[in-house]
């Protein structure tokens, strides 16, 4: 199965990139059952930046993992550009992640043996229509540090390399799980600026998980989760620039 991003969409509505229908997820560890998701419906639109807010255990990470093709729901379906990815084979999910999804992790997950540029190249080498690694790093303000190894970069710089790595493939969706969780606020804001810029310049649908409500201000929509359900979706009339945020 392949996923195409060239499907036709209605003229007047923003195109839906990713759609989740009635997702549930139950983890079984031994005899204990944990219901992480209890029926979630969500649409992510092209070019939008969504912030998913929720306390620990609210199910936001589970949702992100399922949307990103890292995990499969117990029931319900996820459509990418109209194609059901929940029915996909493992190898198709790998292709989905490779070609269409960018991930940014809380702890950066850079490969320590590769320089910043090489970490980005790691992804561009296998992607279908990537940008040049230098270009991606330029975009996150690291044009000067191309040949530094992770051990030679600060936390914020490492996270920006991770963002460059995630966007260099020109993904349709960028999924960020607590991207500022391991950073101080000033550095965190630099990282958010990078995300904001990427979203603006290449129009990638971006979903950011956080439990920091302030970050919600920079989003088009804020989705709140609690106890495995979406409890509230608010659309911001105006996105606040990341540089104005403070916590």
């Amino acid at each position: 199965m392949t996923f195409s991003s060239k499907a036709q969409d209605p003229v007047d509505r923003p195109r839906v990139t990713l759609r989740a229908e009635a997702l549930t997820k139950i983890y079984r560890t031994g005899e204990v059952e944990v219901q992480a998701l209890r029926g979630v419906d969500l649409e992510l639109f092209e070019r939008e930046l969504v912030v998913l807010l929720g306390a620990s255990g609210s199910g936001k990470s589970t949702l992100l993992n399922i949307l990103g093709g890292l995990d499969v729901p117990s029931s319900g379906r996820v459509f990418f550009d109209g194609t059901d990815i929940t029915a996909s084979e493992e190898s198709a999910l790998t292709r989905f992640r490779r070609d269409h999804v960018g991930f940014v992790f809380q702890f950066y997950n850079l490969i320590p043996s590769l320089t910043a540029r090489e970490n980005v190249a790691l992804v561009t080498e296998i992607a279908a229509h990537p940008m040049a690694p230098d270009e991606a790093l330029e975009m996150v303000g690291l044009g000067e540090r191309l040949d530094h190894f992770p051990a030679q970069l600060s936390g914020g710089e490492q996270q920006r390399v991770a963002i460059a790595r995630a966007i260099a493939k020109r993904p349709n969706i960028l999924l960020c799980d607590e991207p500022t969780g391991a950073l101080d606020s000033a550095t965190g804001i630099l990282v958010l600026e990078a995300l904001e810029q990427v979203n603006r310049e290449i129009g990638t649908t971006t979903a950011v998980i956080t439990h920091n409500t302030v970050i919600g201000d920079m989003a088009d929509r804020v989705v709140r989760l609690a106890d495995g359900r979406i409890v509230q979706i608010t659309a911001n009339p105006r996105r606040r620039p990341a540089c104005e945020l403070a916590w």
Binding site: G68, L70, E90, S91, T94, R95, F96, R97, R98, D99, V101, F103, F105, N109, I111, P112, L122, V123, I126, A127, R165, K169
Partner: peptide, 16 residues
Amino acid sequence: GRELATLRVLGFSRME
């Protein structure tokens, strides 16, 4: 393990 899992998340196949 962590490094390799990251690569899997980034879209590398099992083979890779």
